[in-house]
Amino acid sequence: MAEESKPAPAEEQSEQQSIVKAGEVSQWLTENDFAHESLEPDHEGVEVIKVEPDFLLPLCTALYAYGFNYLQCQAGIDLGPGQQLVSMYHLIKLSDNADRPQEVRLKVFLPRENPRVPSVYWIWKAADWQERESYDMFGIIYEGHPDLKRLLMPEDWVGWPLRKDYVSPDFYELQDAY
Rank of each mutant, 00 (worst) to 15 (best):
A65P: 00
G76Q: 12
G76D: 10
V46N: 08
A65K: 14
L85H: 02
C60D: 01
G82M: 06
V25W: 03
V104S: 05
E44I: 03
G67I: 05
E52P: 01
A22C: 13
Q102A: 11
P41V: 02
A22E: 15
I49V: 05
S87D: 08
K50G: 11
L94E: 09
V104Y: 04
L59V: 07
H36F: 13
E37P: 00
N97F: 04
V25L: 03
V48H: 08
T30Q: 12
E31F: 03
P58D: 05
R100W: 00
R105L: 12
F55W: 08
L29M: 13
L94I: 14
V86K: 08
V104M: 08
E40K: 15
P41K: 02
D54L: 12
G82E: 08
Q72C: 02
I77N: 05
P81E: 15
L71F: 03
W28D: 06
D33V: 08
Y70H: 15
L71A: 02
E44V: 06
V46T: 15
P81L: 04
R105G: 05
D96I: 00
E44G: 08
F55C: 07
C60V: 14
A22L: 15
D96Y: 01
F68Q: 04
Q72K: 08
V86Y: 06
N32P: 01
S87L: 04
R105Y: 07
Q102V: 07
D42S: 13
C73R: 10
W28R: 11
Y66L: 06
D33I: 07
R105W: 06
Y70T: 06
N97Y: 01
F68S: 04
Y89A: 09
F55V: 11
A98H: 00
N32H: 15
V104C: 09
N97R: 07
E44R: 15
E24P: 00
A65L: 12
L29V: 09
G76K: 10
E47G: 07
E40Y: 10
